[in-house]
Write a protein that binds this DNA or RNA. Structure first.
Lengths: 150, 150
DNA sequence: TATTGTTATACTCTATAACTATA
DNA sequence: TATAGTTATAGAGTATAACAATA
């Protein structure tokens, strides 16, 4: 397979691998998203955690972490931060776990974060037609289901 | 838009954003690729650097770094590592820069790395039909060209 | 004045290990 | 015995700043 010419001159042998293309698109889009989330003092992962809690009230941090592939050791301080900022509250389930619930303040924050995600997506993928966006989503889902990825 | 049900039970509001889907597919595929490259004592980024040098002999590390979005401060030790392992040689261009050339040993290494990339891609995206893979590449390229990403 | 290469360094993310408490 | 949560810590990966040498 022929490699592509990029930068006006260099050949890019990595273009031939879909996995590497996805890696670069992901890195580039995230580098655009990160500073917008940083304006709200959030990382992409922390934003994902809050949005998951908002959509799934009463779940434990272990359940949230499993879905987002975040280790227990790493999600603990995130939950602590959300609790400190009064965006999330804990309700005891049993002696060792508790359900997570969004607060009124957390609800407002999650809506601001969702707006950022939506605006960013529109800019990043706005050149695609609606049917192309639908197809891209489908192909990404099919990939994920096949490989049992993230 | 309705969110999807995942894990048998949790809703996933992040599914609605293409950027976030790409982030997760990227993270998951890279987590599968990383241990295979580690068997060759390479990271994905270092492998990309060697493959770019192989495909573009005589280029400077600044040029390679610009294409791969690697800062000068970070690519310097990578080149040092490749030179130490006798995979790459430097040839003076002028007083402050030099062209990078792959050695015979580096050529063999780059072929092993390319094989790993190819096998990994086949596994990760093997469920897609050939036309689906072509379409996925096209959509990723269109996205990148639009946003001038990575 | 801008660019190349280099070093030092800090910050974020993620990974492992060890621990307590509870199911 | 397995799971939930926590803490400490180590390792990548990537960021900025400063510097010398050269275009």
């Amino acid at each position: 397979m022929a490699t592509q010419i990029i930068d006006g001159k260099l050949r890019d042998p990595l273009e031939q691998w879909i996995g590497y293309r996805i890696r670069r698109v992901s890195a580039a889009t995230m580098s655009n998203l990160a500073p917008r989330l940083a304006d709200e003092a959030f990382s992409a992962t922390l934003a994902a955690v809050l949005l998951m809690i908002e959509a799934n009230p009463g779940r434990t941090q272990a359940e949230i972490g499993r879905v987002l592939a975040i280790k227990r050791a790493n999600i603990a301080p995130m939950i602590g931060r959300l609790e400190t900022d009064a965006l999330v509250k804990k309700q005891s389930i049993d002696g060792r776990s508790f359900g997570l619930h969004i607060t009124r303040r957390g609800q407002a924050q999650s809506e601001r974060l969702a707006s950022i995600f939506t605006a960013h997506d529109a800019e990043s993928f706005g050149e695609l037609t609606p049917s192309e966006r639908t197809e891209l989503k489908r192909l990404l889902n099919k990939t994920r289901e096949h490989a049992r990825l993230g």
